[in-house]
């Protein structure tokens, strides 16, 4: 039987990882140093692996025979449920790190809670992924300090990148009617409850990086409903090109 709430929730989890993984893969071959190139690609691959598991679960919950590849490559932009933060362009390396910093610290807290999910698949994926994401957060946090407390140029770039990404952070802590039943049944995590610990973590790293917390601005939201920035369409055009041109191609 179709479980539309679980389908929606698993798409949110999977799409966050998928889209950010795709974004990070854009750095492949372009990062400032070989070591950085590898580390960004590693993070991207971890995320795409998570997306595979969550989208497979989504397909099963939907019960219409769509697997993870169908969901990744044959959905159009309005059907993607990722948060707006992950679809933001890479910008420069500092902007990429600012995005990773905000996201990974949130995702680690989220997955830690999802390890206790009453849905066995969600819990199992979370238990595997939480170790990967703990490292992503650590890597991003270290880079925040190196760039923020680095040269005048690295600091300027990071301040600008963080200022852009910050407006998308409130969306991470939303909970809406669509997933309330899942929160009640212990399948989903109430993201609103993650905010205090996230704020503490963010503040600690910003302090080490000698940076101010960016000014609060009106939050930009809508990703969970499929209302995306124009950037996502361009990303999908590239990511889905092969499957659009040669549907169900195999190699």
């Amino acid at each position: 039987m179709a479980d539309t709430a679980l389908f929606d929730y698993a798409c949110r989890l999977g799409d966050d990882s998928l889209i950010l993984g795709q974004r990070l893969s854009e750095w492949c071959g372009h990062a400032p140093m070989l070591e950085v190139d590898l580390s960004l690609a590693n993070v991207g691959l971890d995320l795409i692996g998570q997306a595979t598991h969550f989208l497979k679960l989504a397909g099963e919950a939907e019960g219409k025979g769509r697997d993870e590849d169908k969901l990744a490559f044959h959905r159009d932009v309005l059907d993607f449920k990722n948060c707006l933060l992950v679809e933001q362009p890479n910008g420069d390396f500092a902007q990429t790190i600012a995005r990773q910093f905000l996201f990974s610290n949130w995702q680690e807290l989220l997955l830690r809670e999802l390890c206790k999910s009453t849905n066995a698949t969600v819990a199992a994926v979370a238990q595997k992924a939480v170790k990967e994401v703990a490292y992503h957060a650590r890597l991003a946090n270290e880079w925040m300090v190196r760039l923020g407390d680095g040269t005048a140029e690295s600091r300027d770039r990071l301040v600008n990148g963080l200022d852009w990404m910050w407006r998308f952070s409130d969306e991470l802590f939303e909970a809406d009617a669509a997933i309330e039943p899942l929160i009640a049944s212990g399948v989903a995590c109430d993201a609103r409850k993650l905010r205090p610990e996230w704020d503490v973590r963010i503040a600690r790293v910003l302090k080490d990086a000698t940076l101010e917390r960016p000014k609060a601005r009106r939050a930009t939201v809508g990703g969970r409903k499929g209302h995306h920035s124009e950037h996502l369409g361009h990303l999908l055009t590239e990511m889905q090109f092969l499957q659009r041109a040669y549907p169900d191609a195999k190699w």
Binding site: M33, L34, E35, L38, S39, N42, Y135, L139, E142, R146
Partner: peptide, 20 residues
């Protein structure tokens, strides 16, 4: 070997480069 700005980052670069 890896390039890194300091010891901590060297450890992370080593992790990412040689223990995948």
């Amino acid at each position: 070997s890896v390039h890194a700005a300091d010891a901590k980052m060297a450890l992370e670069a080593a992790r990412d480069t040689y223990t995948r």
